[in-house]
Write a protein that binds this DNA or RNA. Structure first.
Lengths: 146, 146
DNA sequence: CCGATAATGTCAGCATGTTGTCATTGTTGT
DNA sequence: ACAACAATGACAACATGCTGACATTATCGG
């Protein structure tokens, strides 16, 4: 038998690989004028979206990456004065990564590019399709994230 | 206004990043016993799926990657005797990347792991949802792939 | 309270992707 | 045919991710 489902899924997997690469390119293009890169975009986004302070391993958990990879990025962003490490009252060694004023400003500028991009990209896509696809992606993430 | 669509899409984007990482991990785990990695998995899959012979830049186009990245992988796979470079009658310098017998054998072994993985992962997902999500991903790829 | 376990920071090595550059080879339009 | 342009191979520099290893610090169970 041919199992169209198997082929469909493999096609989906390859397409996710490809979309991932294209999204990184989009992120790089969007953030270029702000002196960011897609990796820094991810980190700054994770921090800005979290209500409570995040530690480096915390950001890594949100992004699904290794803490070492995140640490490398945040170290550079601290020396670029976009972030600073704030004393964590709940943990002596694990500091809280916080946006500096400059970092907040960059994030606001970022949103001025990012928001129109998000809206423009999805303007001809029904919200139901987006929700449905997100549910599927989340379901797969849950399956693999153990 | 809050524009739930914008937030929905950004959530989708972050989820794609995360799924991408998890799929690479899955690929690494699946191919480990075969002496492959996810990068080689992609290349060997692209070659096996193409009816005509593919050149290195051709594989790169299929995968949506730079030809240099693919070249590096294929060079290693040639020295590992999984691939060989075949004279291309249509181009004096650009050789055709071909599976050796050993490479074909690995690919067959790979399928014995990959097919159950694909079926198992999707067994509780309706085929319509998969198709719908793939359509959306393809649509985004088309939008960004210029 | 104390020992075992988990979490964190740090450093190192490596895999995989990017871009840039340059010489060479193909292709195409006039 | 020839000149302009595109595609390819090769090499280099770099960004971003991974894992492993080790010391230190927190947390938890007895």
């Amino acid at each position: 038998m041919h199992s169209p489902k198997r082929l469909l899924f493999l096609d989906f997997v390859l397409s996710v690989f490809r979309l991932n690469g294209l999204l990184i390119s989009e992120g790089d293009a969007m953030t270029e004028k702000l002196g960011l890169t897609s990796a820094r975009w991810k980190v700054i986004g994770a921090i800005a979206l979290s209500s409570k302070g995040l530690t480096v391993p915390g950001i890594a958990r949100v992004l699904g990456q290794s803490r070492q990879a995140v640490q490398r990025i945040t170290d550079v962003m601290v020396s670029d004065n976009l972030l600073f490490y704030q004393v964590n009252p709940r943990h002596k060694r694990s500091v809280i990564v916080t946006l500096t004023d400059a970092g907040t400003e960059i994030y606001n500028l970022l949103r001025e590019v990012q928001d129109p991009w998000a809206l423009g990209t999805t303007e001809d896509i029904p919200i139901e399709e987006l929700e449905s696809a997100l549910r599927l992606v989340r379901r797969l993430i849950q399956k693999f994230d153990k």
